[in-house]
Amino acid sequence: MRSIHVTMSVTLDGVVQGLGRPDEDTRGGFAHGGWGTRHQDDVMAREMGEGMRRPGDMLFGRRTWQDFTTAWGGRDDGNPFTKHLNAATKYVASATLEDADAWQNSILLRGDAADTVAELKAQPGPDLSVIGSASLVRALHAAGLVDRYTLLIHPLTLGTGARLFGAAPLTEFGLTGCVPTTKGVLIAHYERRV
Rank of each mutant, 00 (worst) to 15 (best):
S3W: 03
H5Y: 11
V6K: 02
M8P: 02
S9C: 13
S9N: 15
T11V: 04
T11R: 09
L12R: 07
V15R: 11
V15K: 10
V16W: 04
V16M: 08
G18C: 12
L19T: 12
L19C: 13
G20W: 03
R21G: 13
P22Y: 04
E24M: 07
D25K: 06
T26S: 11
R27A: 14
G28H: 11
G29T: 08
A31T: 14
G34K: 11
W35T: 07
T37Y: 03
T37H: 07
Q40P: 00
Q40T: 14
Q40C: 03
D41M: 12
D42M: 07
R46K: 13
R46N: 08
G51S: 12
G51C: 06
R53Q: 14
G56W: 04
M58E: 11
M58D: 09
M58F: 15
M58N: 06
L59A: 02
F60R: 05
R62G: 01
T64S: 13
Q66H: 02
Q66R: 07
Q66M: 12
T70P: 00
A71E: 10
W72C: 01
W72V: 01
G74H: 03
R75D: 00
D76H: 13
D76I: 04
D77E: 12
N79V: 04
N79L: 08
F81A: 12
N86C: 09
K90S: 00
Y91H: 15
V92A: 05
V92W: 10
V92R: 07
A93I: 05
S94L: 07
T96M: 08
L97V: 01
L97Q: 01
D99N: 14
D99V: 03
A100C: 05
D101V: 11
D101E: 15
D101G: 15
A102H: 04
A102C: 05
W103N: 01
Q104S: 14
N105M: 06
L109V: 03
L109E: 00
A113R: 09
D115S: 15
T116I: 00
A118P: 08
A118V: 09
E119I: 09
E119S: 11
E119V: 13
L120H: 10
P124K: 12
L128A: 10
S129R: 15
V130F: 06
S133R: 02
S133D: 02
A134K: 02
S135G: 15
S135D: 15
S135P: 00
L136V: 10
L136T: 05
V137Y: 04
A139W: 02
A139H: 04
L140I: 00
L140G: 00
A143D: 11
A143H: 10
L145H: 03
Y149T: 05
T150D: 09
I153M: 13
P155R: 09
P155T: 01
L156N: 03
T160M: 07
A162M: 15
A162H: 11
R163S: 13
L164H: 04
F165N: 08
F165I: 06
F165E: 05
F165L: 15
A167C: 00
A167G: 14
A168W: 02
P169H: 03
P169I: 06
P169R: 08
E172A: 13
F173P: 07
G177D: 14
G177H: 09
V179R: 12
P180D: 06
T181G: 10
K183C: 07
K183V: 01
K183G: 01
K183S: 14
G184H: 09
G184L: 07
G184R: 10
V185W: 00
I187F: 05
I187V: 14
A188M: 06
Y190A: 05
E191C: 03
R192W: 03
R193K: 14
